[in-house]
Design a protein around this nucleic acid. Structure first.
Lengths: 178, 178
DNA sequence: GCGGTACTTGAACGATCGTTCAATAACAAC
DNA sequence: GTTGTTATTGAACGATCGTTCAAGTACCGC
């Protein structure tokens, strides 16, 4: 998974994988049908980890809007802790393989939709508690936050400076706070 | 350029390029040093087109904030007019080749920084005309808008529906309007 | 026409790609 | 200790990768 994350699907060769896993080709193909299948398993593994993270942060017992703040704070922490700048495997994959491969794409989109759904739930909760800026639609705001994540992921490749990313997050979250 | 845009750098083979250009390998290598060089020229071509678009929209004689609205409107028009969902070659490249290739990366970042700089100029103009929400920093807002572009580009691969993207843009621009 | 420069052709190169498989080693049960 | 199952090995396959180049064609001024 780490290799696919670092280098992308197409640029990661089976040779790379055999060296990293210290498994010979035959063993690799004994465990997985082929490179593609191994990649799908990597995606699933990554998506599971992401789901755990999302659940932990967005379903904690903090107030809804605090949870969203914490989410982005953790996102930036994680970004800062990754000097390689790998970004997000799902986002990377979405841009790399795009429409050509329906199965891979669907799996990525499904994982991302789960995050959006959680955002929407949290925002709905905030709305019900009267903590959301009036007239704001949870599902639209959830989409804005997803766009924010994606944008930060790309912007980090352009300017990987923590303070700039912090400012962006502050501006972005001002929409839900206002 | 179109091929690189559609399929990405690594996934585009010289064979693809010879078929698309109807040039034999020798001719291609007579005109360009190698595949990489051809890709760099493609990037430059794309960046030039982008620059023209940015200049036309962000330096028109409309009021500053209107120009920014128009920019995003045109961005969504262009997105809707591209059923292949190619997105932005610069963003795609930034995520695909990431840190491994300094030269390619620098060229992409430079082109993107130009867009950010233009945003910043327009926002500064709005600030001077008292049309910007008080206490907002142009350079931070410019970064937010860049993040918005990036995010929309990715979100479009997830949900390519115009109305959703419109809503996101409205929410995003509410930050500069407020 | 002729000679020379510029461009095109397409076969071929070595390297690497993803994948397979017969041979070998490791380990389990009895 | 023998047997049967399971996992590992690493050489080899055909396909494709990016690249080269000698040979051939087109086009120019004279």
């Amino acid at each position: 998974m780490l290799l696919f994350w670092r280098r992308g699907y197409h640029k990661t060769s089976v040779r790379d994988l055999t060296e990293a896993t210290r498994l010979q080709p035959g063993s690799l193909y004994g465990a997985f049908d082929n490179k593609r299948s191994l990649f799908l398993h990597s995606l699933d593994y990554y998506a599971d980890e992401l789901k755990r993270f999302v659940d932990a942060v967005l379903h904690s017992d903090e107030p809804p809007l605090v949870r969203i703040h914490l989410f982005f704070e953790h996102l930036l922490d994680e970004t800062a802790a990754d000097p390689e700048g790998k970004g997000c495997l799902l986002v990377n994959t979405l841009l790399e393989v795009h429409a050509e491969d329906e199965e891979i794409n669907q799996r990525v989109i499904q994982a991302l939709e789960y995050v959006e759904k959680c955002f929407c739930q949290v925002l709905t909760e905030a709305l019900e508690r009267g903590e959301l800026a009036s007239g704001k639609d949870p599902s639209t705001l959830a989409r804005l936050l997803m766009t924010g994540i994606f944008g930060l992921r790309v912007y980090n490749k352009m300017h990987p400076q923590r303070e700039e990313l912090d400012d962006i997050v502050d501006s972005l979250l001002s929409v839900v706070n206002a």
